[in-house]
Amino acid sequence: MTAIPRSTPRVLPGLSLGLGISILFVTLIVLLPISGLLWQLAQLTPADYFRVMSSERVLTALRVTLTAAAAATLINGVFGLMLAWVLTRYRFAGRGLIDALVDLPFALPTAVAGIALVSLYDRSGWLGSVLDKFGLQVAYTWWGIMIAMIFTSIPFAVRAIQPAIEELDPDEEAAALTLGANGVQRFLRVVLRPLMPSILTGVGLSFVRSMGEFGAVIFIAGNLPYKTEIASLLILIRLDEFDYPAAAAIAGTLLLLSVILLVAINLAQTRMQRYLRAEG
């Protein structure tokens, strides 16, 4: 028996309008620009690409960017976890204010953050002058880059970890206590392990953000080629020289790195969650 196929009319209105607007916007604002980069990349031969990428200046810029981002991420992982823990588990005066201030680096324009940080860590600044007494210099060095990256990405770490701590069951900690687990064991087994997926997410987002950060970093970085030049700035310099292929090669590499990272985080997260659920 063959029923005459009829398309069923939709009950709620607005699918075609909503979808139409979405597709138009996403095409013009997201898809086309990204494909512009891919199109430029496609015009590069592999040899061209490797010539650009293997130049000493590019390699240094990538190394500076990635190592500073990694260091910033590590610090944000530790302090992000701590802040998230303190904000969800403890009640103290000013907690609400602190909670709100965690988002400040996200809300503050990056250029503003940049000049604020450099004015603080410059030799004449409040912190810079103190550090100078110990012969330490942060501004215009790799350390400055790292500080700027910590600043802009700390909210991502905290906000990714916070909900997971809220969901932790305090009873399990208590149970571990009655079973005689000491503090460290308890923390590692009962607290850290279920938090791992969200810590990973927070840390990953923080790294991706740090890797691409520009405004906050360039003021404090010093921007010396072969020393304190970040990859984003090098893209801009190549652009000003109208060397679009080189700019596209570096940008494409950065983009690919962040996409790979985000996909990896996503995969690892689902897998770990499945594993943890199977265990529990």
Binding site: L32, G36, V208, G212, S232, A247, L254, L262
Partner: peptide
């Protein structure tokens, strides 16, 4: 996920 400079470059390369 796209860093600001890369984003700007993308627009320049197409538009």
């Amino acid at each position: 996920a796209v860093s600001p400079i890369v984003a700007g470059l993308c627009f320049l390369l197409i538009y």
